[in-house]
Design a protein around this nucleic acid. Structure first.
Length: 345
DNA sequence: GCGACAG
DNA sequence: ATCTTGTCGC
């Protein structure tokens, strides 16, 4: 892959990512006085009901930019729900002032629900991109060809995201160096869409490392690979777009079923897609050591086979819950985030 | 009512 | 992920 390729990949990727807060603002502005909508309806208008949690938390932020309109958003049951001021009576009063009857903290949705005009539905588009994404084939990386591996993680300070890539020797325990980058992030965290939030940071960081000639031969990414509702977690997408072998490492399970919830230390417990698809292997749960009851969730990213994945991840386990390269990147990115907060920049 | 989903 | 106080233990 040529030297300028990663810069171009970042640019092309950025163009696909919609401004969700802005689109949500436009949707809520459709709702006139005397009408209401629901968190789920707004999420569906953005293209995926899974975003309803983000819609709700965003409208509940203390400094919510839609504070003048957010009283018109209620739960799908008709329940009033919460209000950013913390005072639900204030939300009720505003609704009543707009001519909406509130009985026992509920509104009549049949009567007042506003039919939102569906726009571009950006999440539906991104979901379709994931579903139809074709990873360019490449032979799996071989153990003997790996000289350096790295962990990739992101921390946040306000709207700033700090991505860190921590390079390690192939022994999985010797830190070589950290590389970092800091950029504003506006795409929210929505289950299944993490890549659209964090991939721009990762790709820019890797582009810089590519120019310095410090790209690692294998990346451990904080997030999932194949273990994903559409089999395309951030680790897989990153690997395929950058052309670098990757493995996904998560601390919580996003989907799938595990036969044994609490595996023995060091045992690779398979995660299947579902109980009806026991042969569709998505990844593994593994307990790094006896000190914790929380397993790591490991899945194939890109350009790596099952055996090499297990070998390298096992090699990277030391005294911590996460593999050392991920742990190092996590600590370094948090350190930089605290610096940014202390400096006020 | 239950189940619950990366960062 | 971040927000948060003290507390338990190596």
């Amino acid at each position: 892959m040529g030297l300028s390729d990663l810069r171009q990949v970042v640019e092309a990727f950025q163009l696909r990512i919609a401004d969700l807060p802005e689109l949500l603002t436009g949707l809520l502005q459709q709702v006139p006085a005397g009408k209401v909508t629901t968190y789920g309806d707004l999420a569906k208008a953005l293209g995926d009901s899974v975003a309803s949690r983000w819609v709700a938390t965003w409208l509940l932020e203390a400094d919510c930019p839609l504070g003048e309109l957010s009283h018109r958003v209620v739960r799908s049951t008709g329940d009033i729900g919460l209000y950013f001021s913390g005072d639900v009576q204030q939300k009720i009063a505003r609704l009543q002032a707009e001519g909406i009857e509130v009985t026992e903290s509920k509104v009549n949705l049949k009567q007042h629900r506003f039919a939102l005009t569906k726009g571009s539905m950006p999440l539906l588009e991104l979901k379709g991109w994931q579903t139809n994404f074709v990873c360019r084939a490449r032979p799996p990386v071989m153990l003997g060809d790996i000289r350096t591996i790295a962990g990739l993680d992101v921390s946040y300070a306000g709207n700033q995201g700090i991505a860190v890539c921590s390079r390690f020797d192939v022994d999985g325990k010797t830190l070589i160096s950290h590389a970092s980058i800091c950029r504003p992030v506006s795409f929210p965290y929505i289950t299944g869409y993490l890549a659209f939030r964090e991939l721009p940071l990762h790709l820019e960081l890797l582009a810089t490392m590519q120019e310095e000639g410090t790209l690692p031969d294998l990346l451990l990414v904080d997030g999932n690979g194949r273990l994903h509702p559409r089999r395309l977690g951030i680790a897989t997408m990153l690997g395929a777009l950058a052309g670098i072998p990757t493995i996904g490492i998560a601390k919580k399970r996003i989907c799938g079923t595990i036969a044994n919830d609490l595996p023995e230390v060091g045992v690779w417990e398979p995660i299947a897609a579902s109980q009806t698809e026991p042969n569709d292997l998505l990844g593994y749960a593994i307990l790094p050591h006896a000190k914790t009851k929380h397993p790591q969730y490991v899945s194939l990213g890109y350009g790596v086979d099952d055996h090499l994945m297990k070998t390298m991840v096992t090699r990277c386990f030391a005294g911590h819950r996460s593999p050392e390269p991920i742990h190092a990147a996590d600590r370094e990115s948090r350190r930089i985030a605290s610096t940014i907060i202390a400096t006020g920049a």
